[in-house]
Every structure is written in C-alpha cells, then in structure tokens.
Simulated scan of single mutants.
Amino acid sequence: MTATAKPSPSPTPKPKTTSTSKPAPADNPLLDGTVIDTVAYGPHTRQRMDIWHQTDGLKRPGVFLIHGGWWSGGDKKYMTEITESYAAQGYTVFNINYRLSGDAAWPAQRTDTLDAIATARRNAALWSFDPNDYVVVGFSAGGHLATAVGTYGDGLPGLRGVVGISPVTSPMLAYEEGGSDVFNLEKRKLREAAIQLAGDCEPARCPKIWASMEVSRHASRGDVPELAVHSEDEFVPAEHSLQLKERLRTFGVGMTVLTEPGSEHSAPLYRLPGVAEKVENWIARRLL
C-alpha cells in the first residue's frame, strides 16, 4: 500500500449509445457478426468509447485500448487498425477516448479510464463481455494511463494484466530528462506535456500532483502482472518501466520489460516485425 491518497473514480453513469450500431469491416471474415457501438461513459464529449463486440450473449475476454498523444492530443480513431486486430482474435474490444490535459488536469485521465472500465463491467451483458477477464493496453501517454490503472488501489476486479507500449510511467523522469537533455526536442516536448498534465504546475510547486502521476508510487500486492515494450533509443527509455518493475518486484508482482532495436515509439514500435505477436501472446496467456 502507498501512503499517497487514491481518489475514487466518479460514479458510473448509465451508458448511452451516441451513434447507431454498425457492422465491422466486411473485408475481414474473422469479424463476421461483429458490430461496433459508440458509447458515452460520461457527459464530456471526450468520454466516449468504441466497442467492437458480438451479439450472441456469450462471455468473451476484453481488451481495453488507450491511445497516446502527449496527454494533450490523439484520438481513438487512430487505434482502429489495432482494435480490429484484437476483435478478429475473438475479444470484446473497448477503444476509449478520455479528457485531454487541455480539458482537465490530472487525475481526470485516470478517472476517465477507470470510469470506462467500470461502465463496461457494469453493462457487460450488452457487449458479450466477461467482466472478470480483461487486460488494458496503452500507447505512450496512454501507456501511462494503462499502468496507472494497473497500480490503482489494491487491484481492479477482473483485471488480468496491463501492457504499455513506450509507456511514460514516470512523468517525473520525463520532466528531469527534458530539462537536462535540452537538444532532444522530443524529450523537451514530453517535459512540457507532463507539466501541462499537472495543471501547468511544476514539481517544486505541486509535489502531491506529481507524486500522484508517478505510477510506481501506487504499487501494491494486489496489482497484476505487466508487460512493457520500449525501443533501445527512443525518447521514452526503458528506464521508465524498469523503475516500475523494481517497485512491483518488492510486492511480489511480476513485470516483463522488452527492448527492441532502433528508436521507434508507440504505435510504430508496435508495428515492428514480431512486436505485436509478442504482445498478443502475452495477453493470451493472461486471459482465462
């Protein structure tokens, strides 16, 4: 258990379909019978998720996908190809949007992710979803949210594992590296993005907010195994995940950190030969 207080997610709203159900792409026979619903899990326009599911009422494992974009940009529409790939494997897939840092400061993004998961679990029968068998997968800033969910409280009901692709698990490390490596434009941008996430407040002035954003500070024995993938030379180094791995280890929780040659980050890293397969195999071993 961590000494840092952990706010509860906001009350789960009743889901509302914001667009009519539509069939999945017809050019993939593995998606036969799959439909896509766009559902509101909160009142803000960003509190939406696309749900790729079957309508036969069977319970399927779930995969929640969280896009990246420096916490200030990005959209679920950029995750469509990856969403389709998991739906084709037979999972119910939740591709979520969340409030960006320009909409609300931390912890709004974590709260939105928790609310999306709570909405899905509460209404699992609508989407042929087993609420006690799911993983969360996040990319870059979305990897921060995924790993933050993985260390939230003493473990979320039904969560079996967390995957981060280039996850920014330590905004503080990003802040420090962006200040020391001034010639790396991406590290400088990530530092500024972390400051914006904290409500335009730097660590010295808002230490509690920055402590709340640090994933490893929330680790506990109830957490689930995690997988992280980084490139050897990307601007979000493996050190982010190695810090979390060491912290989880003290609680007896396993974490695997993989590194790939090159400097690809986030989705381009995921698309390197063999990476998606490694992630998919890890997920398959975690789910029942």
Results as ranks from 00 to 15, higher is better:
Met1Thr: 15
Asp56Gln: 03
Thr92Phe: 07
Met255Ile: 00
Gly142Trp: 12
Asp133Phe: 02
Leu269Asn: 06
Gly74Tyr: 11
Ile82Arg: 10
Pro225Ile: 03
His144Asn: 10
Gly33Glu: 05
Met172Gln: 14
Arg217Met: 14
Lys189Cys: 00
Ile165Trp: 06
Thr4Ser: 13
Ser19Leu: 11
Ser241Ala: 07
Thr259Ile: 14
Val39Thr: 10
Ala125Thr: 03
Ala26Ile: 00
Tyr78Lys: 14
Trp106Gln: 09
Ala228Ile: 12
Ala87Gly: 03
Ser170Arg: 11
Ala26Lys: 07
Leu197Ser: 08
Asp50Tyr: 03
Glu84Pro: 04
Pro29Val: 01
Gly42Gln: 05
Gln109Lys: 09
Leu30Tyr: 09
Val35Thr: 06
Gln196His: 13
Thr151Leu: 00
Asp133Cys: 02
Pro131Thr: 02
His44Ser: 10
Glu176Tyr: 11
Ala118His: 01
Pro107Thr: 04
Cys206Asn: 07
Trp71Ile: 12
Tyr86Thr: 01
Ser231Ala: 15
Thr256Arg: 06
Asp32Pro: 05
Ala3His: 10
Val275Gly: 03
Arg249Asn: 10
Leu145Val: 07
Ser10Pro: 05
Gly138Pro: 02
Gly90Ala: 08
Leu227Val: 10
Lys59Tyr: 04
Leu173Glu: 15
Arg160Leu: 04
Glu232Cys: 00
Pro167Met: 15
Gly69Lys: 15
Ala228Cys: 14
Leu114Glu: 00
Glu202Gly: 06
Val39Ala: 07
Ser19Trp: 08
Pro261Gln: 00
Asn28Ile: 00
Ala104Asp: 11
Asp50Met: 05
Ala88Thr: 06
Thr38Ser: 07
Tyr134Asp: 03
Phe139Val: 09
Met1Gln: 13
His44Phe: 07
Ser212Leu: 12
Asn97Ser: 15
Leu227Lys: 08
Asn184Gln: 08
Asp223Ala: 08
Leu248His: 00
Pro261Asn: 00
Tyr86Phe: 09
